[in-house]
Design a protein around this nucleic acid. Structure first.
Length: 288
DNA sequence: CGTTTTTGACCAGCGC
DNA sequence: GCGCTGGTCAAAAACG
């Protein structure tokens, strides 16, 4: 029970690369893990462009959690996922060769406890949406689905279909609120947003930003994880215009691929309906 | 016919 | 060492 919860929270804190403060709260749901700080006001300052969105997808609210890897500002393009390269293609059917290769693999990458598999910078956010897979302007291919522990909903794994782009994303529903979709991006696109056949709104947008709106219309919420290291200030002024700031998550940096001159949250009215819930709202389940 | 999804199996990491 | 779990592969099926 408690153990399970802890596990779960660690899971999510890991997933979002957000340190989870154990002991701070007792029992709670998934939302509780996303400790929303009082960034609301500053965000609201940014998000004052109400207006209708003209997105085709069903209504959705993005309950955003830009939780990123605090200490992974650099994206080493080639050092990613040995699993990908190592097992990209099993050639032929020669069993012996396979065995040999597997042995080799094992020799080449012995269990390294200390050198945990390097992870790409990740960006997770929650979207209140009926559809699981949001169209974010990029093309994704589903390569797996897994039932996850402590959740009745399966987690889907997608990979960017663009060759040489190893960006992945995971999509799952919050077990706490089945209407909320948790999307986790991993890695950085090495290419501009493609033009999708669906007339996607992803063009000129970072995938994440696109996803914010692509799920549909409606609300959009940004929050910051606690102990967020990118914004050391209690009430950071999310200056998204500085898109090349190395200290910013790749999510923001990725905008370099998107020639849009305007800052993220003034994005052509695509994110106009963002809503920042009071942190209380999200911290509700916190019990004493 | 090419592309995408589904799905069972496999593998690695981690905790006990 | 063993079992559990998350992540990935890859063949088959489904789809456009």
């Amino acid at each position: 029970m408690d153990k399970r919860e802890l596990e779960l929270k660690n899971e999510f804190s890991d997933m979002f690369d957000v340190p989870y403060c154990e002991g701070e709260r007792g029992s709670s749901g998934f939302m509780d893990m996303l400790d929303f700080q009082d960034y609301g006001p500053s965000l609201l300052d940014l998000i004052q462009t109400p207006g209708p969105q003209t997105l085709p997808s069903p209504t959705s609210e993005v309950v955003n959690t830009p939780a990123t890897t605090p200490n992974s500002p650099s994206i080493s393009s080639s050092s990613t996922e040995p699993a990908n390269d190592g097992r990209s293609k099993r050639e032929g059917g020669e069993e012996e060769e396979e065995r040999d290769q597997e042995k080799l693999k094992k020799q080449l990458k012995p269990k390294k406890k200390n050198t945990k598999r390097q992870r790409e910078p990740r960006f997770a956010f929650m979207t209140k949406s009926e559809v699981d897979h949001l169209d974010d302007g990029y093309r994704w291919r589903k390569y797996g689905q897994k039932a996850v522990k402590n959740s009745p909903f399966p987690r889907s794994y997608y990979r960017c279909t663009t060759a040489a782009c190893g960006v992945k994303k995971r999509v799952e529903r919050s077990f706490d609120d089945s209407s909320i979709v948790v999307t986790t991006y991993e890695g950085t696109h090495t290419h501009p947003c493609p033009v999708t056949s669906r007339g996607s709104i992803g063009i000129n947008m970072t995938p994440e930003a696109a996803a914010f709106g692509s799920g549909g219309t409606s609300s959009f919420v940004i929050s910051q994880p606690q102990q967020q290291s990118y914004f050391p200030n209690p009430t950071p002024n999310l200056s998204f215009s500085t898109t090349t700031n190395p200290s910013l998550p790749s999510f923001f940096q990725e905008r370099r691929f998107c020639p849009s001159p305007s800052p993220l949250f003034r994005d052509h009215g695509l994110l106009q309906d963002m809503i920042v819930p009071s942190s209380k709202e999200w911290k509700e389940p916190k019990e004493e």
